[in-house]
């Protein structure tokens, strides 16, 4: 394959001929390593006994590279984390790339290298994949889809409906770093001292909790829509009010500062390495002891909603007054008023 640094992806790289073979065998396989199905469209896997978790996610982000990560790392860590949130140890990933004609090859190499490093960090192997190329202007650089298999190690099912009144709500770390890293890059803000995305594998923390005998009632990584979207869904699915102490929410000054400048709600910012954990009260000390060294905190409690009212997320302010968490709208549009 072309070693020129100005080389770009061309339509032929997805055409099924020589150029595509050169891309796969000259770039993808050497960088990504263990590609079990290099000579076949399907991979045959030996899996450990037990229940499997299976998850799939697509990744689109601009800019493609941001402080603390890039779309490649995000695509590997994100799907591995979705498995971890089911209480499963991530094992294998598939990787599908949609490349835009004209994507610089050095950039693709950087992203692939980042994926390979992320796979090592997550303890997963990329076992099968696919590459397509679309005409320039038909995609935003590249899109990545990963699917993952993991083996469940949690003792029971982790679902919103398992939540009970009185359960404690904990965060695994501070909120919003990933969202702020992306927003700053988009809106010409400079983070100083530098603030990186929180993009990181979650399985190590989950494994620690499980090994210590913590039984998660609910686990969810706080990606799109951030903590706000997760709480909203949890309240609806469990039928319980979630009552959060606002001063307990861990937020860095740069995160609140960015939100103040852009008029955004920090709880709606995406995280890529944080989760919400619900446990029954007697397990709280054990869970907190494991999470607090990494910045985790007890932030609230589930409780029955007032009679006749639908379940909501209630924030208790530092004045002791209450407000509802505003519904997440799904678009983070900076405002001036």
């Amino acid at each position: 394959m072309d070693s020129d640094d100005s080389a770009t992806i061309r339509l032929a790289h997805g055409g099924g001929g020589q150029a595509m073979r050169a891309l796969i065998h000259g770039e993808l396989l050497p960088i990504l390593g263990a590609y079990a199905a290099a000579d076949h469209d399907a991979t045959v896997l030996g899996l450990p006994a037990g229940r499997l978790a299976f998850s799939s996610d697509s990744y689109v982000v601009q800019p493609l590279e941001f402080p603390g990560g890039d779309i490649g790392r995000l695509a590997v860590v994100g799907t591995a984390n979705d498995l971890a949130m089911a209480g499963a140890r991530p094992l294998h990933l598939s990787l599908a790339l949609i490349l835009e004609e004209g994507l610089p090859l050095p950039l693709l190499r950087r992203l692939l290298t980042s994926m390979a490093a992320a796979a090592r960090d997550c303890g997963v192997t990329i076992v099968t994949g696919d590459t397509k190329v679309v005409e320039r202007g038909r995609a935003d650089g590249l899109y990545v889809t990963t699917s993952g298999l993991g083996v469940v190690e949690a003792p029971g099912p982790i679902t919103a409906s398992a939540l009970r009144a009185g359960d404690a709500l904990l965060l695994s770390g501070d909120l919003g770093r990933h969202g702020v890293a992306i927003l700053a890059a988009r809106h010409g803000l400079r983070l100083d001292p530098p603030l990186a995305s929180d993009c990181a594998p979650l399985w190590p923390q989950v494994q620690q909790l499980l090994a210590a005998g913590v039984v998660p009632r609910f686990l969810r990584d706080l990606t799109r829509g951030g903590l706000a979207a997760t709480l909203e869904e949890l309240a609806m699915a469990s039928g319980l009010d979630l009552r959060l102490q606002e001063p307990a929410l861990p937020l860095l000054p740069a995160v609140t500062g960015t939100c103040a400048l852009l008029g955004l709600e920090p709880l709606q910012l995406a995280c890529e390495g944080r989760f919400l954990l619900a446990v029954e009260p007697r397990q709280l000390p054990r869970a907190l002891a494991l999470l607090s060294p990494a910045g985790g905190a007890l932030v609230g409690q589930a409780q029955s909603p007032p009679p006749g009212l639908s379940p909501r997320v209630v924030l208790v302010t530092r004045f002791g007054s209450e407000r509802l968490l505003p519904p997440t709208t799904g678009d983070l549009l900076p405002r001036i008023c």
């Binding site: 302010t317 007054s321 209450e322 407000r323």
Partner: peptide, 24 residues
């Protein structure tokens, strides 16, 4: 006022009404 729940902290003899100060 609403974000901080300040209306809950006001003396009972006070009512706040919202004015037109929103250009949107």
């Amino acid at each position: 006022l609403l974000r901080w729940g300040l209306d809950q902290l006001l003396p009972a003899d006070l009512r706040l009404i919202h004015g037109p100060g929103c250009p949107v």
